[in-house]
Amino acid sequence: MGKIYSSAAEALDGLLFDGMLIAAGGFGLCGIPENLISAIREAGTKDLTVASNNAGVDGFGLGVLLESRQVKKMMSSYVGENDEFMRQYLSGELELEFNPQGTLAERMRAGGCGIPGFYTKTGVGTVIADGKEVKQFNNEDYILEEGIFADLSIVKAWKADETGNLIFRKTARNFNPPAAMCGKVCVVEVEEIVPRGTMDGDHIHLPGIYVHRIIQGDHEKRIEQRTTRKREEA
């Protein structure tokens, strides 16, 4: 069955096409698939729609795909800290669909679970509800949100075994599991690939059924806001 590939380019071979929808894991710069993003940049695939909570920063993360004008549309909850993003958005070159963060996560999870739509209270009475079906349950309004069915998921995990079982680390888990679930094909980059049988089956965060291709990669893991406290405060 061989899910392990030797490079990001090889792992993406045959999966990329212009105009595709990609779901990407990560929150800010934490837990982002750095190597796969670079490989998509190298491949030059255009007119991408990318569902990702954020759009990276200038020159790092998804910011590199904005810089190369490969992204047509972003589906995100928060896009600060990215000047190039704002420039393209304000000039009309880039489409943006704001999603409340939890709605975006649930849309991915739902897509992965075969659920085409769900009702939520989030966004009722706001611009997010514009054009969406409103339905009452127990005398409260809910709006209809649709599941995301992506052509490709690009995901970062901490460890994978040879069968694609994944373990994430701390808050680098974030959007990675729901993003992994909602793609027709899911490519994962990890810090370490371990032999089968070395992970405790009770400790696996995402089962390998969701994972089709795996690469081991190096990760810069840039910190967006370095905040610390002084020793003497302890």
């Binding site: 929150f27 710069l29 901490w158 701390k170 808050t171 910190i223 806001q225 370095r226 610390t228 002084k230």
Partner: peptide, 15 residues
């Protein structure tokens, strides 16, 4: 964290 103990995999919602 104390200086030098920052973990890029451990951030809050404000990053």
């Amino acid at each position: 964290p104390y200086e030098g103990e920052e973990d890029p995999d451990l951030i809050n919602a404000g990053k």
